[in-house]
Structure formats: structure tokens, C-alpha cells
């Protein structure tokens, strides 16, 4: 069987071309594949399309998509925020966007999650009640079911997904820890190539109970264990 465990982050992202579309899991920190993002930054790919909850913060040297945005490597983002989630916290994206130097598609967070879910579930489009009567429905087909109006949203696919999990076996079965899970399971299914960084050393097949697998290995293509000197999740100084 094809080896899924890669020796380091650079090898796992080496073939990503300019113009690739990449889903980045993570919500407010947990689940963000910071080591893969850092490796892609060093690799140099540009003209990227990023799909993630926010376009990143790149604050206090905490690596996230904001690093790629700030360095001008991103052509377009699909996100639930095109302004900073916290008005007091500036984001590298905001200035570029206001200056027209980056493209963006803004959408409700549940619509983002469901469009990704649909892509990984073989569903072309779906009707959601979210956004009806708002700018989010402008130019989109709407339809009434049972007396209630819904708006048509389409599946969102990507070439790659970067996911962070707690544990993986060699087949790629994944377990997440607490809110690290967020977009991981749906993005792993929606992307053509899913690359995962895991907190712990990769275990053998059979070491994860099948009833306790969150993402089955058939959705996972490449795995890298975060080494002790990798970027770890730690609570911030307060």
C-alpha cells in the first residue's frame, strides 16, 4: 500500500503548485495546521485560493493563513470573515482587501461548512434558510419549501486540505482532541489531497479503536507527526 507517513512537512507540501486551492481547517486556533502552513510558506507557492473560517491573523508570530496573505501569496479567499473578527485586532488581509489587492467571497459560517460538507458528500448544491433577505442571497436562486424561503448554495471543492489532529494511524484514521475537530472532518472529505499534521507520533493500524475514529483513513493522503520542536498549540500569555 502507498506510504502515507511523510518524514517532514516540506516533503508533504513539495508538489503544491502555484494557483492551487487549499482548505485550511481551524477555528480560533485549535485545528490549525500551523506546521504545514509554515512549510508551504517556505516552499513558495503563490496565486493560492484559500478556504477557511477567517483569512488569518498572523499575530504574535503565531503562524496561520495570515502569513501567506501578508506575503502576497494568496489571490482569493473564501471565508466567513472579510473583516477582522475582533475590530481591535488588525489582520493582514483587511488592508489588502480594502485596497483591492486580493479577492474574497464572504459567506455565513454554516454555509461555508455545509458547502464543504456537500463537496465531500457528492452533493452538487443545497437550499439553506441562512442569508435569505440579506446581501448573501443577492443574485442567487431562491425557492419556497413548506412556506419558507431558502437560497441555493453550491458545493465548494479544493485541491488540498491542511488538517491538524491529535492522533493518526498509518492508514490515516484520525482522532481529534476537543474543538480541534471543527472543519477537519469535512475538509478531509472535500479535498483531492488531504494532508494532516498530528500532535502525537503516528501509531500502527489497529491502535485506534474503529468505533473511535473521527475521520476514516480513506480521506487522508499524507501524514506528518509534529516533532517536539514543531509548532505546538499552547495557551497564550495573559
Amino acid at each position: 500500500m502507498r506510504e502515507k507517513v511523510y518524514p517532514d512537512f516540506a516533503a508533504a507540501v513539495a508538489d503544491i503548485p502555484d494557483g492551487a486551492s487549499i482548505m485550511l481547517a481551524g477555528f480560533a486556533g485549535p485545528g490549525t495546521a500551523r506546521n504545514l502552513i509554515a512549510a508551504l510558506y517556505r516552499q513558495g507557492a503563490k496565486g493560492l485560493t484559500l478556504i477557511s473560517n477567517t483569512p488569518g491573523r498572523w499575530q504574535d508570530d503565531r503562524v496561520d493563513s495570515g502569513l501567506l496573505v501578508k506575503e502576497g501569496r494568496v489571490a482569493k479567499v473564501h471565508a466567513a470573515f472579510t473583516a477582522s473578527p475582533h475590530p481591535s485586532v488588525p489582520s493582514p488581509f483587511t488592508d489588502l482587501y480594502e485596497a483591492g489587492k486580493i479577492e474574497a467571497e464572504l459567506m455565513p459560517q454554516g454555509t461555508l461548512a455545509e458547502r464543504i460538507r456537500a463537496a465531500g458528500a457528492g452533493i452538487a448544491a443545497f437550499y439553506t434558510p441562512t442569508g435569505v433577505g440579506t446581501e448573501m442571497a443577492d443574485g442567487k436562486e431562491t425557492r419556497v419549501f413548506g412556506g419558507r424561503e431558502y437560497v441555493l448554495e453550491t458545493a465548494l471543492h479544493a485541491d488540498y486540505a491542511f488538517v491538524r489532529a491529535r492522533r493518526a494511524d498509518r492508514f490515516g484514521n484520525l482522532q481529534y482532541h476537543r474543538t480541534q475537530r471543527n472543519f477537519g472532518p469535512v475538509m478531509a472529505r472535500a479535498a483531492k489531497v488531504t494532508i494532516v499534521e498530528v500532535d502525537e507520533p503516528v501509531v500502527e493500524e489497529g491502535d485506534i479503536d474503529p468505533d473511535h475514529v473521527h475521520t476514516p483513513g480513506i480521506f487522508v493522503d499524507r501524514i506528518v507527526a509534529v516533532p517536539p520542536d514543531g509548532i505546538q498549540e499552547v495557551p497564550p500569555e495573559r
Binding site: A80, F81, S84, E98, L106, P108, Q109, G110, T130, M136
Partner: peptide, 20 residues
């Protein structure tokens, strides 16, 4: 989700929560 004069906005989960 959007202040006057801004190009960008922050929807997050608000629209889904508001209808759901």
C-alpha cells in the same frame, strides 16, 4: 456584520444562528 463604508464584513455564525 458590516459597518458603514467598509468593504469587508464579519458574518461568522450570526446569520445561521439568527434564522435557526
Amino acid at each position: 456584520w458590516k459597518v458603514a463604508g467598509a468593504k469587508g464584513g464579519g458574518i461568522g455564525g450570526a446569520m445561521d444562528l439568527a434564522v435557526g
